[in-house]
Amino acid sequence: MTASVRLPVAPRLFADELLSSWMARVSARYGSEPLELTVYLAGQGRPTEGLRQVDDVAPDMGLLRLWAKACRIDPARLRHRSLASRYPDRPRDWFLNETVPVCLACFDADVAAGRDAYLRADWRLAEQVVCPAHRNIHLDRCPDCRGRLRPSFRMLNDLLRPFCRKCDAVLTSRGAGGGSPSEESFAAGVLDLQRQISRIVRADPSRLDCLEHAVRTIWAPLDRGGAARPVLALWYDEPGWNCPYNARAAVGSLAPLQHLPVRWRALTLVILHDLFGAKLVPGANLPEAARILFRRAAPMPWLAQSRDARNRKGKRTIDASAERVHRLSKRPVHRLNGNSLDERGDFGRIHP
């Protein structure tokens, strides 16, 4: 039987750090990745098929106990750093599942303070698209190679710094140049909307149901099966507009914000403000622009289900016509069809 492994050096967690970020920093101290170090901590002769990356929202306690013992930390302390413990009243649909968008200025602030760079917990909140400290839009693509951003940590000048896993570029805002005045103005406006959405998600269940219904409807497929467009295409007022490739996974989804890149999430908040004003949620009487969009949504059976019904186990049933609309809305779009990456980066004011 193999003795439990004790790591000689293990950095402590920062108060607002993601569990996966801390594990990546610990692993980087030993020139490894979290999954590789997990296999090592489990020891030879132990089954490895169940070992996996940590779930930041609700981590497996067996995995936490393994890391806690190796790093000489109370397992309960690690559990309290999970997103489910940090935000106990937040629905799971309002946490991001995949890429963690980052603020490069926050990384630079870490270095300036003489500490390791790390990923913040609130970067996984679905409505968080602007950094409150630096007032810039989060990044989910590498500024150098433009690939999907998946940071890794490595030692540089005695501190752990984030690098792009694809192109090995250090992730820093230095030398990247400041944003344009229109970009800064857009970020400031979205920051106010982001704060309002956070208050609704955190403490207003009645308005939250209306908010979720509005977001799902905006990203529902259009009722015309051959359109291959979400409902928000009508807000653009461009007949030939198709759904961009990097946003297709959100069309018809129960939780569209989980699948959207940062700028499409930001634009969704702007559309909510345009349609429903300062409240950001539909009321008893819909404005005319909202009525136009809402009545053009394809009949997706699960959009009308309650949260409890959606959370039950089992497969959703979809009628044949809705299945076809859902499939067509996600069909590939040619790059010359006006849907190239960052085509609408200025996010100018557009009327429904």
Rank of each mutant, 00 (worst) to 15 (best):
M1A: 14
S4W: 11
R6C: 01
A10M: 04
P11Y: 08
A15R: 15
A15K: 13
V26C: 06
S27P: 05
Y30G: 06
E33Y: 10
E33S: 08
V39I: 08
G45L: 08
T48H: 11
E49P: 00
L51P: 11
R52Y: 06
A70F: 02
I73T: 15
D74F: 07
P75E: 12
R77P: 00
C106H: 13
F107T: 00
D116Q: 02
W123A: 04
E127M: 04
A133Y: 04
R148I: 07
R154G: 07
R154E: 09
M155F: 08
R161D: 00
T172H: 03
T172E: 09
T172F: 07
G175V: 00
A176H: 13
G179V: 07
E183F: 10
E183M: 02
F186R: 15
A187D: 11
G189I: 01
L191C: 03
Q194N: 03
V201F: 01
R207K: 13
R207L: 09
L208P: 00
E212Y: 00
W219V: 00
R224P: 00
A233R: 07
D237Y: 00
L257V: 01
H259K: 15
V262C: 02
W264H: 12
V270Q: 08
L275R: 08
L275N: 03
N285E: 14
N285L: 11
A289V: 10
I292K: 12
R295Y: 09
A297T: 10
A304M: 12
S306M: 02
R307P: 12
D308G: 04
K330S: 09
R331D: 04
G338Q: 08
G345F: 11
H351I: 13
